[in-house]
Design a protein around this nucleic acid. Structure first.
Length: 603
RNA sequence: GCGGCCGUAGCUCAGUGGAUAGAGCGCUUCCCUCCGGAGGAAGAGGUCGUGGGUUCGAGUCCCACCGGCCGUGCCA
């Protein structure tokens, strides 16, 4: 919007200088509008003169002078938002905007309403955006959603919300590792069975309350005596189903949802696994020749060596596609290796179901996976650009200032649901369960999202559960509650926003008013950037900044003033616009927008 | 060994190759005749791990080193 207009203005100014011969055509470098750090540097800055100086062969300040002339000569026209241009430092153009041009955007924001974030799509205009499949979480159905996997869950969730706002068609998917031959799933089933029937736990069996929960649920649903007679396969099916249900519930509480829960086993049954392996054999990427290829490194030299191997397994020749070693697809006895499912799954996404790009979000223990999966992608004949793995880094849990194991005192795994419940109970002891979960969800989501997914993160459990004032989500939500309160106050004084009765936005001239408008307008730009570089944590920073900008405005400008009805209405509109902006970020972050916040006073 | 990530204020961390490096918490002051004080204003606090390089310009990009965390399977 505002930035686009400025970019276009400067671009055409450059063109006119080139047309009149004052700039050589080589000077046609991209125009970039940047933020300024202080008010002294204007509302926006442009570094064109600095970036173009070399190609133009003209000193930066001289280019600046020419641009200033062109831009200011047209600033008298009503369509130009530019008031003045200054040349500063080595050759920055500091652009000062007309206050009324900024103020006019309040109406734009109000018109957009809930779809404000969708303006991000403007940054991708003219681009064909690929149809995306984003797979994330995908925790094995033999364990709960832990506080560790929760990081990937919120990250993936918000990333998908951002993609959608930016205009990408996107489907979210959860991969269920439910292969019937899985040893781990069998052991899990046996463990559940032991708990349910009071038998001794198998060696290395699964322990913990969640296993007991599943066991009790099986007994409740099917009867202890009836289930006693059932074979392990029956237990496997039931315990897997119930475990998945628990995961689904926890994710729902966390406001993370999926378009599709995709079963690994279904691909074995439908023949897709076999078909995909045949495809690899047919195109020469897989064979059962009697050798094994490995990359051998000596210093910086790397060579491919073929080593003798007993005949039998079906090999994916992954080394052809940059992997370190070839991978077994079918074991010597004909049973598929795990990666066979991955091959079929890739084929399902990029082939069968026609997604133009598949993204997988994985934890830090998976980066050995990247070259392997890239090889799978290429072996199936798909270009590398159509597949991407995003790794989020580890969450380290800290308690009492020391690294803490991911288990609670009673030895149970720290589940996401425990975290949500603890935060909610501590911050609002007397609220009902649903309200506590809402608070726990808001705080934990925000906490996870504050850090970049690609950096390590210390999760201080004491901090998150006890000292809630330190969590900025309350600061941000308070701004929203405050706006609601002001709007209610205005209403009781007889001031109501009315689309049919336009207000005079030009009355908004105070520096904090203009700063607030410009901050709201930044939202679509932030969203577009997130869609490009996946840095969704910046949305939390943005939310805090927007809240702060509102508090500044609130402090400096009184909204409800019966003796100034026109100004009151103009400021009321600004409040609505700010609330629109806050709600838009909240929606992206999956954080609620409470209209009032009542602190429980600790006695 | 190989690979990934990190090192910025006392603590937890932001920071798009741009000008005087920011925020929250903590610390020291101040501000309700006023729409919610979960707020605002001011102050103290920094060799951006070290050393080179790239360029008009580096916390940001490249290389080396130091320090920390993690991963490295014919497992699923």
């Amino acid at each position: 919007m505002l930035r686009n207009r400025l970019t276009n203005l400067i671009r055409s100014a450059v063109e006119s200088l080139i047309a009149s011969g004052m700039l050589p055509s080589e000077a046609r470098v991209p125009v970039e509008i940047t933020d300024t750090k202080t008010r002294d540097h204007g509302d926006f800055a442009c570094n064109f003169a600095l970036t173009a100086t070399k190609k133009a062969g003209i000193p930066p300040r001289q280019i600046g002078v020419m641009l200033k002339q062109v831009l200011e000569s047209s600033s008298g026209e009503a369509s130009s938002p530019i008031a003045t241009v200054e040349i500063a430092g080595p050759g920055f153009l500091n652009i000062h905007l007309k206050p009324e041009a900024v103020a006019a955007y309040v109406d734009t924001v109000l018109d957009m309403g809930n779809s404000l974030a969708n303006l991000a799509a403007q940054s991708f205009e003219g681009q064909k955006l690929p149809k995306l499949n984003v797979e994330f979480v995908s925790v094995n159905p033999n364990g709960p959603i832990t506080v560790g996997s929760a990081r990937g869950a919120v990250f993936g969730d918000v990333l998908c919300r951002v993609f959608a706002a930016a205009g990408y068609p996107v489907d979210r998917e959860y991969y269920i590792n439910d292969g019937v031959n899985s040893k781990q799933m069998r052991l899990f089933a046996e463990s559940v069975q032991s708990y349910a029937l009071g038998l001794p736990l198998p060696e290395n069996g699964y322990q913990g309350d969640y296993v007991k929960d599943v066991a009790e649920e099986v007994s409740r649903l099917f009867g202890r005596d009836a289930s006693r007679k059932e074979p392990v396969g029956w237990w496997q099916e039931r315990s897997q189903e119930l475990m998945l249900e628990r995961q689904r519930q926890d994710l729902a509480t966390f406001e993370v949802g999926f378009d599709r829960w995709f079963s690994e086993q279904s691909m074995h049954e439908s023949g897709l696994v076999t078909d995909s392996l045949e495809k690899l054999k047919a195109n020469g990427s897989a064979d059962s020749e009697c050798y094994r290829t490995e990359v051998v490194r000596e210093g910086k030299e790397a060579t491919l060596e073929q080593k003798p191997e007993e005949c039998g397994p079906l090999w994916l020749r992954a080394t052809k596609f940059g992997d370190d070693k070839d991978r077994v697809l079918l074991r010597s006895d004909g049973r598929p290796a795990y990666i066979a499912g991955d091959v079929a799954y890739m084929e399902s996404k990029l082939g069968q179901r026609g997604y133009e790009k598949a993204i997988i979000i994985l934890g830090p223990d998976h980066h050995g996976y990247i070259p392997r999966m890239n090889a799978v992608c290429q072996a199936l004949g798909y270009p590398q650009e159509r597949f991407e793995i995003i790794i989020f880094q580890i969450v380290r849990f800290v308690k009492d200032g020391k690294p803490a194991p991911m288990r609670k005192r009673d030895g149970n795994i720290y589940e996401l649901r425990d975290l949500i419940d603890e935060i909610g109970a501590n911050s609002s002891p007397t609220a009902d369960k649903a309200e506590q979960q809402r608070i726990g969800k808001d705080v934990s989501r925000f906490f996870y999202l504050m850090r970049s997914h690609e950096t390590h993160m210390d999760f201080d459990i004491d901090l998150a559960t006890k000292q809630n004032d330190e969590n900025p989500v309350f600061y941000v939500q308070y701004a929203h509650a405050r706006i609601c309160s002001v709007i209610a106050k205005a209403e009781s004084a007889g001031f109501v926003r009315d689309d049919n009765n336009p207000t005079d936005a030009a009355l908004l001239t105070h520096e904090t008013e203009l700063a607030l408008i410009m901050k709201i307008l930044d939202l679509p730009i932030e969203v577009a950037r997130c869609a490009k570089d996946y840095g969704v944590h910046r949305l939390t920073t943005y939310a805090i900044e927007l809240a702060r900008t509102y508090h500044h405005f609130y402090d400096a400008c009184r909204v409800v003033q019966p003796e100034e009805p026109a100004l009151t209405l103009a400021r009321l509109n600004l409040c609505h616009a700010a609330r629109t902006g806050l709600r838009a970020v909240f929606t992206l972050l999956g954080v609620s927008a409470p209209e009032r916040m009542d602190r429980e006073t600790a006695s």
